[in-house]
Amino acid sequence: MITSINISHVWVFDQDEALDFYVGTLGLEVSADMEFGGAMRWLTVRPKGATDREILLEKVAPPSVDPESVGKIRDVITKGASGFAVGFVTTDANALFADLKAKGVEITEEPTKQFYGTDFGIRDPFGNRIRFVEPAKPSP
């Protein structure tokens, strides 16, 4: 029986740039950062204090991906055609939106009230689509 999700990945083109964005701008924390023989870097981040789930910031590069596929994946991501990369939960969508907008983050959708809460969307520097939701409070 599968009980939970512990890790998922986002393609990035440069792991230091990704770190700047996901940690420096979004405010996540690094949960692991390990180099293996100079060819591979295992870099994961998570919301502060959230130990049950991590996001692997995986570089699109050989040897794990062949050069031809690297070009195709990068093309798809930079065109914004890679789909919904990751969704975060926040306690205050409007405040987070204001903070990210002030930091110059690319906004795809402003905070909008939905039946499930208030959500908005951004892109990371590579073109991945990220969304944030402040869940609706349960009716009394």
Partner: peptide
């Protein structure tokens, strides 16, 4: 970000 010219064009258009 070390993008190729095609990728940089994609990002601008996106």
């Amino acid at each position: 970000l070390g993008l190729t010219s095609t990728e940089a064009r994609n990002r601008l258009l996106l």
